[in-house]
Design a binder for these strands. Structure first.
Length: 651
RNA sequence: GCCGACGUAGCUCAGGGGUAGAGCACUUCACUCGUAAUGAAGGGGUCGUGAGUUCAAAUCUCACCGUCGGCUCCA
């Protein structure tokens, strides 16, 4: 067969040649470094014959330098080595699955009754793993009939492997029936595994176990909970060390740490999962609400206020009573009438819409509300500001005609982009996801085709690259979600734009058409920041606490050099307020050096130093964060300029 | 909710079966200072809560609450 190499060289190899043969043909150095081959995007073992479809195509030798592919390979290897070590140390343990993941790998085990694993067990397990790595055990692949493989795992009491094989038989793979499965053996350990693997365990240069967690078998919370051991692996100890240092640095960007250091908000056992916002934090929060108001107002949104607590009958009508009750905070009136705190604003907005007789000329109607919501999240799900029990959404519901649907969706996408742009978020920071029809859904296929098509068109009109979340839509319609990552690359959903055909039916929402007949509007749900809480969390982690000037709780810290300059400092602060600049006078009897240090720690964007010279000349000595001393400026001139930058929300 | 870890002063943390410590912060006094920490003195904790073991528990055990890392779930 004819093989092309990435550098356009051509090689002729006999049919049945393996990846190793190919690597040797290219050169002995490469053969030593080779980990796998990549054919048509598929990474394969070196030891396997090249597939027929390799003929005439480019085949790449995967080495340590191949990046993601190479790392995934040795991390998957490391998962097998972990399983081998655990089986050495804990006889009777049952194995399940162990893939490579973004930052490493894991393996899920069921330990024998009474055995509990924690981090204190890691050194022993790691030592055992290193023995296997040092022994350079080869990964041997063998293909077995499903019957033989099944019998083997039944004999070993490996129930989870048996279940996986049974599932493969029932469901097939890529639509094809499965007759054979592959097993990989490294040293004493054999696992049901599709592969691929590197030639030997020696390729894993450095390994470290990171944490232990419970994980439900097959992600199903009704099934057995297994013990998941997380680890990471690299080609060298140096890379591992660098990775661990990176994790350490990420901690400095944790919004929970920053929130405390900057005095923005607090959490207390008195109200688990609900933030206490300090004056500084409330300033930030209110600025964001003001931004939503302003931008919404420019785009034809009108703000409304709806109740916090609704009669149970509304939740029954909306469907929340049946489907969402466990997540709601419920209460009752004195005469025992059931009430529920709103976990979302939608039904309130429907009620409000229903109070008016609407003409087609009124539509689209765009109700926005910085709505305060309560959701009784599981205690283990709470996470700083990212997942809380009480939060405020920048929520809006649009009531539109079918003709308006496309334009309104496109406008929502534009609105989202304008919002994120303002904070400097780019497409590199955002993952766009279009979630399509789920199995359990209401409405006709024609409706879903139309709605999904409209969302797609809107994304494309805005030039956005998106992923498809197959079957991830709500039961009432498809949606676009905006995902952002935190300092540890964990993904959080902020914005969402959803089409809903069902709510208007359920709530009997109508408008009068030009034909003088009643028509159903279509409802759009949209939130752009998602929740102000989560948005602030993400923003803090992305900026490491250096908020944009217009958002900073204190925009200028005014530092009198000695007590006799305090009056001039207060004058400057007054002038700052007149220019719409938030100022704080540090009138402590401390050294300037000390005041500057504290201002830096508070991440204050500007510090204005006032001493004898400035007080006399009516100037301030300007120190900008990250830029240092900028010299003297007339106080009015400087504050006027700064006020302009603030009011335009320039970064 | 589940698995594992953690909970000591406002914050960051040390200690650990014999009755509680540091730095920062805070208060007071002195200093009146030119671009990342002036000095001194002082106040402050029933060691998350509740049981149990013990002559003695902050320390050991259990339960609960909260937090952290995951799972499930989700803005």
């Amino acid at each position: 067969m004819k093989i092309s190499l990435p550098d356009d060289r051509q090689l002729e190899l006999p049919d049945g040649a393996t990846g190793t043969d190919l690597a040797l043909e290219i050169g002995p150095g490469l053969a030593r470094a080779a980990l796998a081959v990549k054919v048509n995007g598929e990474v394969r073992d070196l030891g396997r014959p090249l597939p027929p479809e390799a003929d005439g195509t480019v085949v790449e030798i995967v080495t340590e330098r191949s990046g993601r592919d190479a790392l995934d390979l040795i991390r998957h290897d490391a998962a097998h080595v972990l399983a081998a070590a655990v089986m050495d140390l804990y006889p009777g343990v049952k194995i399940s699955i162990g893939p490579a993941i973004e930052d490493g790998f894991y393996y899920d085990f069921q330990f024998p009754e009474g055995v509990s694993i924690n981090e204190e067990n890691f050194p022993a397990i790691e030592a055992e793993m290193k023995k296997h790595m040092k022994a350079a055990e080869e990964f041997d692949r063998e293909e077995l009939s499903v019957a033989d493989a099944r019998a083997r795992f039944v004999a070993e009491g490996q129930d989870y492997k048996v279940e996986l094989i049974d599932d493969l038989v029932v469901n097939g793979q890529n639509g094809a029936a499965v007759e054979h499965v592959s097993l990989y053996t490294n040293g004493p350990f054999t696992d049901l595994c599709r592969g691929p693997h590197a030639p030997s365990t020696k390729k894993i240069g450095a390994v470290k176990l990171m944490s232990v967690a419970g994980a439900y078998w097959r992600g199903d919370s009704t099934r057995q909970q297994l013990t998941r051991i997380y680890g990471t692996a690299f080609f060298s100890k140096k890379e591992l060390k660098e990775y661990l240092e990176l994790l350490e640095q990420a901690k400095a960007r944790d919004h929970r740490k920053l929130g405390k250091e900057l005095g923005l908000y607090y959490f207390s056992e008195a109200a688990p999962g609900s933030a206490f916002w300090s004056p500084a934090g409330t300033t930030v929060f209110n600025q964001l609400v003001a931004l939503s108001r302003e931008m919404g107002s420019d785009r034809g949104y009108t703000e409304v206020k709806t109740p916090q607590l609704f009669d149970a009958s509304l939740w029954k009508k909306s469907g929340h009573w049946d489907k969402y009750q466990d997540d709601m905070f419920l209460t009752h009136t004195g005469d025992d009438h059931a009430m529920g705190f709103k976990p979302m604003n939608c039904p309130g907005h429907y009620e409000l819409y229903g109070q008016t007789r609407w003409s087609h000329k009124d539509l689209p109607v765009r109700f926005s509300e910085p709505g305060l919501l309560h959701r009784n999240e599981l205690s283990g799900a709470l996470h700083g500001l990212m997942r809380v029990r009480q939060f405020c959404q920048d929520d809006a519901h649009l009531f539109v005609t079918e003709d308006q649907l496309q334009d309104e969706i496109t406008a929502c996408i534009e609105f989202a982009k304008a919002t994120y742009d303002l904070f400097g978020f780019t497409d590199a920071d955002i993952k766009y996801e279009l979630s399509t029809r789920p199995e359990n859904r209401l409405g006709s296929d024609e409706q879903w085709d139309l709605a999904e098509g409209i969302l797609k068109t809107a994304l494309e009109n805005n030039g956005l690259e998106y992923e498809i979340g197959e079957g991830g839509g709500a039961f009432y319609g498809p949606k676009i979600d905006y995902h952002f990552t935190d300092s540890l690359k964990r993904s959080w959903q902020l914005g969402t734009v959803q089409i809903d055909y069902q709510a208007p039916e359920r709530f009997d929402l109508t408008y009068t058409g030009a034909d003088n007949a009643d028509h159903r509007p279509i409802v759009l749900h949209r939130a752009l920041m998602g929740s102000y809480e989560r948005f602030i969390g993400i923003l803090l982690e992305h900026t490491a606490g250096d908020l944009p000037l217009w958002l900073a709780p204190v925009q200028v810290r005014i530092l009198p050099i000695s007590d006799r300059h305090v009056d001039a400092a207060k004058e400057a602060a007054k002038l700052a307020r007149e220019h719409g600049v938030r100022a704080y006078v540090d009138e402590r009897t401390e050294s300037v050096g000390r005041k500057i240090r504290d201002g830096e720690l508070a991440k204050s964007p500007y510090m204005l130093v006032i001493g004898d010279r400035e007080a006399e000349e009516g100037t301030v000595s300007v120190r900008a964060r990250h830029e240092g001393d900028l010299g003297s400026r007339p106080v009015g001139e400087f504050l006027g300029e700064l006020g302009g930058v603030v009011s335009r929300r320039e970064r």
